[in-house]
Design a protein around this nucleic acid. Structure first.
Length: 442
RNA sequence: CGGUGCGUAGCGCAGCCUGGUAGCGCACUAGUCUGGGGGACUAGGGGUCGUAGGUUCAAAUCCUGCCGCACCGACCA
């Protein structure tokens, strides 16, 4: 992408209404623009990142044989009246009336709707188990939205739903999703702590939150830091024994939200050196709620004895739009954003030191033209001053920058700058390709 | 929903107390000089001062309602 063709308008100054670094940086880097309290437009740069994260999450689900589908944002109130949540959900639910005066709502979540769908289809124990997910915009009319995209009213969420014939089977689904989440967050380059949690208005007995540690987080957590040593890498999510072993190894160690915290148990079960008290951002939340919605919405099947039984279900959410902010919180410095390679909208930033220099201009043009199909390159082709280009590229957080100036070009050299370390290496033009592939995974 | 504060150019702000030609920095346009970390100079363009009403010869400024935004609290993914 040539900057001259890109709808990207960055700002030198911070917005006055932003508090969190991630919020300031998202506005400054032209990713989002606020529309109303807790509602944002995603500009091209922001949408690229959002889509990258979504892609990672979707791929992991699809690989695990979880089927992607799509439910609408607007829902009929009927099923919510059946489940009792039309009133119970409270003012956070945005209620709408259509022209026929029917009650509609902008979905805050989809348990009712998915249960209504599967209750028509899953009729026999032979149809179970099943897992479905979608990525869709949600609306929760928060009392006080804040922190930009981190806690907004309209947000993009991946929600998955599991359907099983009994507790044992449902528990396996829960463990599998637990492991899948750990893999997803690891892929995104995030250190995420799974903690026991309250299930809130979703309901149900078994629930875990996934917390990205951050000083700016809103959740307080207590955990045994030995759980960080347990790796998900080698665990096969489809192998019941393996995944349960992993789940138990992790959840046997103390780890919970402040709601669930018991100081006595913490001290009794966790050696002092391993006790960790920390804050973080909730980026995922999973629930097993048994037959709660099946009962309310009549989702039953015929078991192998010919008897009717209720479907056991669970739901599993990841805040996709929140992750954009959360990832920035975990990856920035005083210059700007530092995107992990998995979510960076571009792989390479290309900077021409002087546009009026024929030597560097020729090189940049031909490099870009020859490589734009191999790499995602953001080429700053503006006739701007070098300082502006460098600062701008740092702000945008693209992992690797190629800085092209005549001074180095006459010696057949380019500057390759690593955004994260700030280190600049002179690299021979001939060796550029191998330097990049040796030092970076694309 | 309670408490506090704010709304003036695309962004960040001053002016308001004490009413009298709407200002500054950044950004933008043109030109000149510059040229390795948001450069300098010159000349420009852009505002019904959130909105509706009131007071007044005169309102960005004083008064009232409404709308919007932020922060703190309670609540929540």
């Amino acid at each position: 992408m040539r900057l001259s063709n890109f709808y990207l308008f960055t700002k030198k100054e911070n917005p006055s209404d932003a508090y969190l670094a991630s919020h300031k940086l998202m506005v400054r880097s032209g990713m989002i623009k606020q529309v109303a309290t807790g509602i944002y437009s995603w500009l091209p740069m922001g949408l690229m990142v959002l889509n990258k994260i979504k892609e990672v999450v979707v791929e992991h689900h699809v690989k695990s044989n979880i089927n992607e589908m799509l439910m609408p944002t607007i829902q009929s109130a009927d099923i919510w009246k059946k489940s009792g949540r039309f009133n119970d959900y409270g003012k956070e639910m945005l209620k709408i009336k259509d022209r026929h005066n029917n009650d509609l709502l902008y979905g805050p979540t989809n348990e009712e709707m998915i249960t209504d769908i599967i209750s028509d289809d899953l009729k026999s124990y032979k149809d179970l188990p099943k897992l479905l997910f979608h990525v869709q915009w949600k609306f929760r009319d928060e009392v006080r939205p804040r922190f930009g995209i981190m806690r907004c009213r309209e947000f993009l969420m991946k929600d998955a739903y599991s359907f099983d014939l009994d507790y044992d089977s449902a528990f396996f689904a829960y463990c599998k999703m637990f492991g899948l989440y750990m893999k997803i967050f690891k892929t995104l380059g995030l250190k995420v702590i799974p903690v026991r949690a309250e299930s809130g208005p979703i309901g149900g007995a078994l629930s875990h939150e996934f917390i990205l540690e951050s000083n700016e987080g809103e959740s307080d957590i207590y955990y045994d830091n030995r759980l960080l040593n347990i790796s998900i890498d080698q665990v096969n999510l489809d192998n019941k024994a393996e995944i349960k072993e992993y789940y138990e190894a992790v959840t046997n160690l103390y780890s919970c939200t402040s709601d669930k915290h018991e100081e006595l148990n913490f001290n009794k079960n966790v050696p002092k050196d391993n006790q960790k008290l920390s804050k973080g951002i909730e980026v995922g939340h999973i629930f097993y709620f048994g037959t709660k919605y099946s009962e309310l919405l009549n989702a039953n099947f015929t078991n192998n004895n010919g008897k009717e039984a209720l479907i056991h279900s669970g739901s599993y959410g990841i805040g996709i739009s929140r992750l954009v902010g959360a990832i920035i919180e975990a990856n920035y410095d005083e210059k700007g954003i530092i995107w992990p390679k998995e979510v960076s909208p571009f792989q390479l930033g290309l900077i021409n030191v002087r546009n009026d220099n024929q030597v560097s201009l020729n090189f940049c043009e031909s490099y870009y033209n020859n490589n734009a199909s191999n790499f995602k390159i953001l080429y700053d082709d503006r006739n701007a001053r070098i300082g502006e280009k460098l600062n701008n590229m740092d702000l945008l957080g693209i992992p690797v920058q190629i800085i092209v100036g005549e001074k180095n070009l006459v010696n057949q050299n380019l500057e390759i700058k690593d955004r994260k370390t700030g280190k600049v290496n002179l690299v021979n033009i001939e060796k550029l390709q191998s330097y990049l592939s040796d030092n970076y995974e694309f």
